[in-house]
Design a protein around this nucleic acid. Structure first.
Lengths: 216, 216
DNA sequence: TTATTTTTTTGAACACTGTTCAATATAAAT
DNA sequence: ATTTATATTGAACAGTGTTCAAAAAAATAA
């Protein structure tokens, strides 16, 4: 029965067609102006057909946000080869994370500020075990273990990674929401922020914290 | 001509009536389901009349968000009398800030994540001079000057305040967006986050940083 | 008080929105 | 060729923000 396979393939192709049309429209007029009729118009079908492939508009948006999340993760993983100390690598990775996030600010904003359950399945980071499921947290944990958290328990490293990530998320979100354009200003504030974070990590290590007083 | 005064008063009263109707509707069905017709229905007028008092729906929403911002500021200023060291006062204030923000999470989310120009006139914090215009930053600067930033320049204290605030904003935003309910979990993560921040402040002071290398 | 002007209010319409559903066209299976 | 299953549509429903000419109400002038 190769027919069913083909049917399924065609169905998925049409779903992709709808999604890519939606993506184009979003790029042109923003996600707040995406509409079923605009999608239908672009793929030269009646609006009703879309409900044959998706349950509702939300499912389309959630699909695109999931795609967007994957693109963000991919972009964030694109870090050139580093041949310096683990501490420097950590700092450069943090800088890189913020830079990449700001370079795709619209997408980052929409995806990372979404409170859709579907999207949060990928974007939530404040839970025990996040270091196993979230690439960003996982990467951060690795970098921390190589630098300032060598003697910390895995549980504690995860907490520190979550703190560092949330802190950077706050900065990134403010920079995007407030619409800052001045590159020099951004550069300066980002550097200070990261220095502030690393400062804490450094003193943590020096004072031999890390394990001990961690209790959920 | 007391008539014109009365007219103006009545006009403002009707504006208030519209706004409070809108506020009620938002509390009942959420801001995403607020509509002009629902407002009109509640005040027992035709939808069109609303455009005699407001330019468009956006102006109404922005008005409410401005009100909301004022309520947030007010709530955040409600900090009981403290009779401990400046360091402890700072820490308790940070804890209090997060606690209050989480207690009014829906409002905090809507207001602080808004990218409306009107709202950002009140909520933006990442600009030079924020310590003079933003209550939260101002308060933070004062607390920092009394504790870990005694010998820092005003410019640098402002930067540190912005960093601390952004960092907490990130944590609060994640906690709200991810919809965490478990109070113990929240408590634990909040404490770790604040300890992380204070750790940096402490080492900053010990290492005699603060002035010198600040350059915009 | 009457007439005129100004302000307030409305009904109806326009151009959208998401969504549903019976009817139809197309393709597959018998 | 006929039945079954799938794909597609037109039309409608109920809602959205917004505009505008017309009507009602109130204030001012004669």
């Amino acid at each position: 029965m190769g027919v069913k396979d083909r049917k399924l393939r065609e169905r998925n192709q049409k779903k992709e067609l709808i999604l890519s049309a939606a993506k184009e429209i979003i790029e042109e007029v923003g996600i707040e102006n995406l509409s079923i009729r605009k999608i239908a118009n672009r793929i030269e079908h009646s609006p009703a057909i879309i409900y044959h492939y998706f349950q509702d508009k939300n499912e389309i948006v959630d699909s695109l946000l999931e795609e967007g999340y994957k693109r963000i993760v991919l972009a964030l993983e694109s870090l050139g080869p580093q041949d310096s100390t683990p501490e420097q690598i950590l700092k450069e990775s943090l800088m890189n994370y913020i830079e990449v996030a700001l370079a795709m600010s619209e997408e980052y904003k929409i995806v990372m500020l979404s409170d859709s359950h579907v999207v949060l399945k990928h974007t939530s980071v404040l839970f025990k075990g996040a270091s196993l499921e979230r690439p960003a947290i996982q990467m951060l944990c690795k970098l921390l273990k190589n630098s300032y958290c060598e003697n910390c328990s895995d549980d504690y490293v995860e907490i520190v990674a979550q703190i560092v990530w949330s802190s950077m998320f706050g900065l990134i979100t403010r920079l995007i929401l407030e619409g800052h354009k001045d590159k020099q200003f951004k550069q300066s504030i980002v550097e200070h922020h990261i220095d502030f974070i690393i400062n804490s990590l450094k003193s943590m290590k020096n004072n031999g914290l890390g394990d001990a007083f961690y209790e959920i």
